[in-house]
C-alpha cells in the first residue's frame, strides 16, 4: 500500500505543513527560524521531536500553541486548523514549553488551582495530578523552594491537568534525577497506552529511542527526517557491514579488492567498514575468490543519537568548537545535506 494512502487512513492528531517563521532585526538582519517545516503526529503515538539547540523546536511548539505568529504554513490540531481554532481545541491540549515557569510565591496547589479555574477544570483534578507526578507531599510549599526537577514535575502536572488528548512536553526530563527520568518514561508510556498522544522534545536520545514510536528531526527550521523510529534508523544505517579477516595483515588487500568491486570501504586497525554493497554475500564471494577468509561479517546497527548527529551535522569534531545554529540544511530536491551557518544574517 502506498505511503500516502496509509497516512491518510491514520488519524493525524497534529499536522504542520510548510511552517515558516522569520525573525527580523535591524541590527542582525533576518533569520529563518522555521523554513517550510513539516510534521505529522498520529493518534496514540509517543512522538519524539528532535533537533539541535536553535533548530526551531521550541519555535515550532510556541507557534503551534498560538504564542508566536507564523509567517506562513498550515497547522492543525485534532483536525482543527490552528491558531483559528485554538480557543476551542486548547482544552484538549496539555503543554509545557521550554523550562517550567511559575509564579515563585504561589504553592504548587495554588498554581494548579488557578490554572484549573481559568480552564474550567474541576478542582479535584489538582490533587490527582500532583499525586501522579509525586508532588502531593509538597503541594503546599511555595514553588520557589522547589528544585528544577520538582518544577519540571509541576509543569508536567499542569499539562496533565486537563486530561488532554494531545500532550506536548518540551524537555520533560530536564532536571530530573535518574529515578524521575524512569518515572517520566513510564508515565509517558502509560499515557500513550490510555490513548493520549504524546509529543516529546528531548535531547536524551536514548530515552527517545526507548519510548517513542515515531520521530521528527528538525535542523535549521526544516524537517530532515521523520517516521517510525525503526524506519528512520534503517534508512540511515547505510547498509554498512563490519568485516574482520583471519589475518589482520590481509586487510589492505581486502580493502583494495572490495573497492574495485564497487564498495565504499573505511579501513580500521582490525576491521573494515564496508558500504554500498547490495548484499553481504558479495563481500564473502569477492574475498574468498582471492583466498581471503572472513572471520566476522556483521551488519552495522545505528542508534538514534548517531542518526541525529549525522542528519544535523552536529557531531563533535576534535579541535573544533561548533557554534549554535551551525547545523545542516537539507536540500529538498536532492536530500543531500550541506552544512551551513544558519545564524543571524542568513
Amino acid at each position: 500500500m502506498p505511503d500516502v494512502t496509509r497516512e491518510a487512513e491514520m488519524a493525524a492528531v497534529l499536522e504542520i505543513e510548510g511552517l515558516r517563521k522569520t525573525y527580523r532585526s535591524r541590527r542582525r538582519g533576518t533569520r529563518q527560524a522555521l523554513d517550510g517545516f513539516d510534521m505529522r503526529v498520529e493518534a496514540g503515538q509517543v512522538h519524539g521531536f528532535l533537533g539541535p539547540n536553535g533548530s526551531g523546536k521550541t519555535t515550532t511548539l510556541r507557534t503551534l500553541l498560538g504564542l508566536i505568529r507564523p509567517n506562513g504554513g498550515r497547522m492543525a490540531i485534532l483536525g482543527q486548523e490552528v491558531p483559528a481554532a485554538l480557543p476551542s481545541v486548547a482544552g484538549q491540549v496539555g503543554a509545557i514549553v521550554e523550562s517550567p515557569q511559575f509564579f515563585p510565591h504561589f504553592s504548587a496547589r495554588d498554581t494548579l488551582s488557578l490554572l484549573a479555574g481559568a480552564g474550567g477544570v474541576p478542582q479535584t483534578r489538582v490533587m490527582e495530578v500532583l499525586e501522579l507526578v509525586g508532588l502531593r507531599e509538597r503541594a503546599k510549599d511555595r514553588v520557589k523552594t522547589y528544585s528544577l526537577g520538582m518544577k519540571q514535575r509541576l509543569a508536567v502536572a499542569s499539562a496533565l491537568l486537563k486530561n488532554p488528548k494531545l500532550l506536548i512536553l518540551d524537555e520533560p526530563a530536564n532536571g530530573l534525577d535518574p529515578g524521575g527520568i524512569r518515572e517520566m518514561r513510564s508515565l509517558m508510556r502509560d499515557l500513550a497506552a490510555s490513548g493520549m498522544t504524546v509529543v516529546v522534545s528531548s535531547h536524551i536520545l536514548g530515552e527517545v529511542q526507548l519510548i517513542c514510536d515515531s520521530v521528527t528531526i528538525i535542523s535549521l527550521g526544516r524537517r530532515v527526517a521523520a517516521g517510525p523510529v525503526a524506519e528512520v534508523l534503517a534508512e540511515h544505517s547505510g547498509n554498512g557491514l563490519r568485516v574482520r579477516l583471519e589475518a589482520v595483515t590481509d586487510l589492505p588487500h581486502a580493502a583494495d579488492l572490495l573497492t574495485r568491486a564497487g564498495a565504499r570501504v573505511t579501513p580500521h586497525d582490525d576491521h573494515l567498514l564496508v558500504y554500498d554493497v547490495d548484499k553481504p554475500a558479495t563481500v564473502t564471494r569477492t574475498l574468498a575468490a582471492a583466498n581471503l577468509y572472513v572471520s566476522e561479517l556483521a551488519t552495522l546497527t545505528v542508534d538514534l543519537e548517531s542518526v541525529f548527529l549525522e542528519l544535523t551535522a552536529t557531531a563533535p569534531v576534535p579541535g573544533q568548537h561548533r557554534q549554535v545554529d551551525q547545523s545542516v540544511v537539507v536540500d529538498g530536491s536532492s536530500g543531500d545535506p550541506t552544512t551551513s551557518n544558519g545564524g543571524w544574517g542568513v
Partner: peptide, 18 residues
C-alpha cells in the same frame, strides 16, 4: 508585570489562548 516576568502569562495563554 509579575505575570509576564515569571512566565505566568504564557502558562495562562496555553490554557486560554485568547
Amino acid at each position: 508585570g509579575a505575570e509576564w516576568s515569571t512566565g505566568g502569562m504564557m502558562n495562562l495563554l496555553l490554557w486560554r489562548p485568547q
